[in-house]
């Protein structure tokens, strides 16, 4: 578990350095995250210790922003005056976020040709085609075998009747 934590702190540190000196508009931890994804993609696996730490953080992510959120007591008067605006804005925005994301994905999964030019899609289609071709071939083969058996049977009958 400790080496997973060390690994994450290390990438966080690298991210902070890059953010300070190269990309000041992006928060350091986000750069650390991007670099870690790149590192994992090259490595091709997540070691169990890192996976354990990451799962623990993901599960209780909410705990970590409690201290900042308690600051809401400083904004109470402001929030009270604008309670209606805040609630409408938040509710509408949540509904739109979920439905737009889901509907766009649904659209794509019905009309696949929209992203048919991507390499991954072509590969997938090729594999599907290959599967279908093999299946058709197999069925033809079966039919041929059946036909031959029928013929043989007829022949045998014919010989018998002779």
């Amino acid at each position: 578990m400790i080496d997973g934590l060390v690994q994450i702190f290390l990438w966080q540190g690298i991210g902070e350095l890059v953010s300070r000196f190269l990309l000041p508009s992006i928060p350091g931890p986000v750069i650390g995250l991007i670099l870690l994804v790149a590192f994992l993609s090259i490595k091709g696996e997540v070691n169990p210790s890192l996976g354990m730490v990451a799962d623990a953080f993901r599960q209780h992510l909410a705990l970590l922003f409690v201290p900042a959120s308690v600051g809401v007591i400083l904004f109470l008067p402001e929030l009270k005056t604008h309670a209606l605006a805040v609630s409408v804005a938040l509710i509408v925005s949540v509904i739109l976020a979920i439905s737009v994301t889901a509907l766009v994905l649904k659209l794509f999964s019905i009309k696949e040709p929209v992203y048919a030019h991507t390499k991954a899609y072509k590969q997938e289609m090729k594999e599907l085609d290959e599967d279908r071709r093999l299946e058709i071939e197999k069925r033809k083969q079966e039919r041929r075998i059946k036909a031959r058996q029928k013929k043989d049977a007829q022949k045998a009958m014919g010989e018998k009747s002779d």
Partner: peptide
């Protein structure tokens, strides 16, 4: 409570794992 707050950055980096998966 800032000690808990500090871990937010670390948790952000840890999101790399679910993204990769």
């Amino acid at each position: 409570a800032k000690f808990v707050h500090f871990l937010l950055g670390t948790a952000t980096v840890a999101l790399a794992v679910p993204i990769y998966r």
